Amino acid sequence: MSTGFSHIESKAEHAVLIGVITGDQTDELAKEYIDELAFLAETSGAETKRKFLQRVDRPNSKTYIGSGKIKEIKEYIDANEVDVAIFDDELSPSQLRNIERAFEIKVLDRNNLILDIFASRARTAHAKTQVELAQYQYLLPRLTGMWTHLDRTKGGIGMRGPGETQIETDRRIIKEKISLLKDKLKKIDKQMAVQRGNRGQLVRAALVGYTNVGKSTIMNLLSKSEVFAENKLFATLDTTVRKVVIDNLPFLMSDTVGFIRKLPHQLIESFKSTLDEVREADILIHVVDISHPNFEEQYEVVNETISEIDDEKKKKPHIVVFNKVDAYNPKPDEIGFHPDGKKFALAELKKTWMAKLNADDCIFISAQEKINIEEFKQVLYDEAKAIFQIRYPYHNFLY
């Protein structure tokens, strides 16, 4: 049985993107959110034709957006050969059905799109199993909408017809599949736990951060390896572990899956074992893309997610690495902004609020341009050495 998640075909589908502006959210922030959705759509292979935003007190319980906006988008869809409508929030099963009836094209929500991207990016058996589990968990409450083609054969009040019978059959099959996938993941997780144990007592550092901030580029730079890296969201799904040596001090570094705003809870649940690398790390290296217009919120999203999965976070050395300083453009109202438009020098960046975050160290680098890498290595070396000396007090003389 297919999960029905091959949504974005090899031929680029034309998409409209839809979001809402609620509460005290600014238009600028809403634009950031819809631009991120466009990046997600592009990563999945879709071409964005137009973005729609509507300010509402709260989303419509039936169609998420108002009837007037539904009509406006429908007219655009009919006039421009649009293949798919993508919403920037999770839609309830009933909202999904109602919107599909109104638009008469495929409708995806943010969660569905992210799951689709994860499915296309999964390479190992572990990642594929995790994604498949998340897909089935997402699909289970939405089965009814998949059987609307049987409307004409439904019965009366209780809809006792062949459609309902098929839904119940599929629901049972999916529940069995979820159970089997969970059992399979438990076995893989045990194998991975043994592998982690077999690495001995080397100091372990974990790269964490929002998706597409340059973690894999940093991993390649420090470990002199070739971890897959590209300018797309979720380029890395499987945790990669490499040995890094700085001044004869060896330690392990892991590159973990990137986080994102509103990451589907099914994925967080399924990928908990992958995130064991974060829990079991001795040092957390939080990479931030300082060139992103909304990097402050990205920083907070990652912090909150890590706090959810790692109870020991506060007890570990925590290095914040502001990456891509070569592309950083300060906001006009930012303290220290140069009126003539010049960029901050490293010395000036170290005087900003960013250098005073609640972390053990804050470093400013460009992994791509190899800016300030030696200072980063020194900070990492000092943190790893301190842990090594506690773990192996009799080896102090070597360092």
Rank of each mutant, 00 (worst) to 15 (best):
Q130S: 13
F118E: 04
Q137W: 02
I157F: 13
T124F: 09
H126N: 11
R123V: 14
T124G: 07
P141M: 04
Y136T: 01
F118R: 02
R142P: 05
I117R: 01
Y136V: 02
D116I: 06
K154D: 13
Y138I: 05
R152K: 15
K128S: 13
Y136W: 14
W147V: 03
Q137G: 00
R123C: 03
L133Q: 01
F118Q: 02
Y136G: 01
A119S: 14
Q135K: 11
K128N: 07
T129K: 09
R152S: 14
T129Q: 12
I157R: 11
V131P: 04
G155L: 06
A127P: 06
L150F: 15
A134Y: 00
W147A: 03
Q135A: 07
K128D: 06
D151T: 11
L133H: 00
T144N: 09
F118K: 00
T129I: 08
T153L: 14
D116L: 07
D151M: 06
L140H: 05
R121E: 06
Y136H: 11
L133N: 01
R152Q: 13
L143M: 07
I117H: 07
F118M: 04
A122K: 02
Y138P: 02
P141Y: 07
G155C: 08
Q137K: 15
D151N: 14
T153W: 05
L143F: 08
A127T: 14
T153R: 14
A134E: 01
V131T: 15
L150N: 03
A122T: 09
T148D: 15
T124Y: 05
K154P: 00
H149E: 14
D116F: 06
Q135I: 11
E132P: 00
T148M: 11
V131I: 08
M146W: 04
Q137E: 15
R121I: 03
Q130H: 06
G156I: 05
Q137Y: 01
I157H: 06
A134P: 01
G158L: 13
K128M: 12
T124Q: 06
A122I: 04
R142A: 10
I157E: 08
A134R: 01
W147K: 05
A134S: 09
D116H: 15
Y136A: 13
R142G: 07
Y138F: 15
K154H: 13
R121G: 02
G145F: 10
F118I: 03
D116N: 15
G156W: 02
R142C: 12
K154T: 14
M146C: 03
D151G: 12
T153Q: 15
